[in-house]
Design a protein around this nucleic acid. Structure first.
Lengths: 222, 222
DNA sequence: GTCAAACTAGACACCATTGTCTAAAACGTC
DNA sequence: GACGTTTTAGACAATGGTGTCTAGTTTGAC
């Protein structure tokens, strides 16, 4: 009995992957169990075996994707070097990793589409996404910027705001591509990240590095 | 005969409005003609009378919303003052108008959700949105920033990039709210706009790049 | 090989939805 | 008031999806 777990597990994964694909492509109501079964190379009954009904399957898929996305997110977050002597390059490379592996990959696309289209119908979905899923990417990034600000590398008042703006800037060039399902090329990711980081640093590095002391400049910052 | 146009027109509008509401809430496959008929206070046959089938209705709704959103967009764009002595305040007020009337209203929500969820299944929808609809908000804003840059008020290399970043920054604080269907309050709009504009100006008012010559414009902006 | 568990294929009832059709009613014009 | 058009309510067939059931097959442990 013990080893059948393997087979079961393989089926489960196969079903979850196929379901994620189909739900993402067709939305919840547009997706049919038969379609998922075919894509997963599994009989329909097997799906009803593991997940009582369509709704249960959908919830399981969302949890699965969120867990994976969450793990990937923190794995990426930890890759920012403790000390960086080329802030722009390090931030750019970091932004590329973030977009490539979290924001613009299949899981990111799934969550963006599904939270958007089904978030109102499943409020708990949105809540989970915000608290346990990639929704907290903002606060996590905020912690990173707090570190950088503490070291004097950046000059930031509101860390969470800076994090939101950083993400927004990185997405600025990618939205057109990701909005209708496309996947950005490496060049596009690189360019988007570079644009975003340059603007971000211009806004938050300020004259600290090269000009007079900061105190009277407060008027500029407002 | 001539005056029946009025009645017909009223029905059409009623149907389009109700359909937009339901399509937005339920998605294309989730929306049922009966539901739309009830919401429009119209019999189902009347809908099939005006629009041959569900698909036709959907297309008509999208065109209708896009036309309205487009008109509103250009109406708002023209409100930016020709000469502004308080750039931050003027940009902020402008951003508030833009979000309130274009990005975060019912039409904006509809387009965001529908282009996202049905854009892959209706490529022409996405194309129309990008070329004739609010998708060109970017280039329109780019023209505005080109003007500001020419006047020396801002220092911008790539106008379209600046426009994308401006929009992204404005959305940074609103995404969490709009993502699951909420409508931001006036205070939230105001705060989001202020945060965005301050960062935008810090990035684009100062010396363009590290080695660029400096102008006294910095003081004027603050 | 044996056995139990899991999987498959297909049939099935049930329900919601689309799109058509018809007869009656409402409306606006003359 | 008469007439043509539009709208309405409801019945209708056709379709497609959900979830159940059954009978037969595969799978893996012992």
């Amino acid at each position: 009995m013990g080893h059948t777990q393997r087979g079961q597990c393989a089926k489960r994964i196969s079903i979850l992957d196929a379901a994620a694909e189909v739900f993402c492509r067709e939305g919840f109501s547009g997706a049919s169990i038969d379609e998922i079964a075919v894509e997963a190379c599994v009989s329909r009954q097997t799906i009803y075996n593991h997940y009582r009904e369509k709704e249960t399957l959908f919830t399981a898929v969302v949890e699965d994707v969120m867990d994976r996305a969450n793990a990937m997110l923190f794995s990426i977050l930890s890759t920012f070097p403790d000390k960086s002597d080329h802030l722009e390059d390090d931030l750019t490379a970091f932004a590329v990793r973030l977009t490539k592996n979290c924001l613009c990959n299949q899981d990111g696309k799934f969550l963006r589409k599904l939270v958007q289209s089904e978030g109102e119908r499943y409020p708990h979905l949105f809540e989970t996404w915000r608290q346990h899923g990639p929704g907290k990417i903002g606060t996590a990034l905020g912690a990173l910027f707090a570190r950088l600000s503490h070291k004097g590398v950046l000059r930031i008042d509101d860390f969470d705001l800076a994090a939101r703006q950083f993400l927004a800037l990185v997405n600025a060039d990618l939205q057109m591509i990701t909005l209708f399902g496309g996947t950005p090329t490496d060049e596009e990711l690189e360019s988007a990240a570079r644009n975003a980081v340059q603007t971000f640093i211009r806004a938050y590095a300020g004259p600290a590095s090269e000009t007079a002391p900061r105190t009277p400049a407060l008027a500029v910052v407002g």
